[in-house]
Design a protein around this nucleic acid. Structure first.
Lengths: 106, 106
DNA sequence: AAGCTATATGAACATATACTCATATACAAT
DNA sequence: ATTGTATATGAGTATATGTTCATATAGCTT
């Protein structure tokens, strides 16, 4: 049966698909972004709150949020002077949580 | 009910966990590695075969396999002069395939 | 309007990344 | 042993990445 399978054709990934997947995983491949996304998966947060909780500078957080916004992984609503960010891609959050589960239980 | 949730404590990720997750996603964040892993998820391949099929140099493939080996995402068996690589982490392949599905159907 | 707070942004920098090229290693075959 | 084939590896390089620092923008308050 292995031999049968070896003779079949293979899926080939479209360049577009590969690049999109790469971008998606790249977004998840940095510790700061992982912590930001995980925090936002639990509650909407202002930029300063994220910075305080995660012990990052406001600027670093803002840059990362800008990055995540571009990929539409987060969205925000304004409330007075503050911007409350939250997750905007459940699928990505799902992947993140699976990876966390996997890393924790080992 | 939203108010209730806002008052609860939050999960915090251990530094170790964050770093492991980051490494894992970093492995999946490069187009060449994505294509290599996806190919290997379909059949075990020699280094040269990977290079031919994916139109990469032997050296580039070998470097990436070395990277993936370090993370134990691939393993290999020797057969004569050739080394046949295959996937060694079903969980990572699962994440990869989910991301591909997500990217394709949109 | 002026001053205050929250956030965004650009430049600069140090490090990481992925590749190429040249060469080394390992096994096979004669 | 020598040659050939398959793979690995080290150095070098160009580009990408994540942060900091300084400054800009936007909205609130008085």
């Amino acid at each position: 049966m292995e031999l049968e399978l070896e003779c079949q054709g293979h899926d080939f990934l479209k360049e577009n698909t590969v690049d999109e997947v790469a971008l998606m995983f790249k977004a998840l491949s940095d510790p700061s972004r992982i912590r930001i996304l995980y925090l936002l998966s639990q509650e909407a947060c202002s930029v300063n709150h994220i910075a305080e909780v995660l012990q990052l500078t406001q600027s670093a957080v803002s840059h990362q949020l800008s990055y995540l916004r571009t990929l539409r992984l987060v969205k925000f609503r304004r409330e007075g002077n503050s911007l409350f960010y939250s997750c905007d891609d459940e699928h990505v959050i799902s992947l993140l949580k699976q990876a966390i589960q996997h890393a924790e239980h080992r």
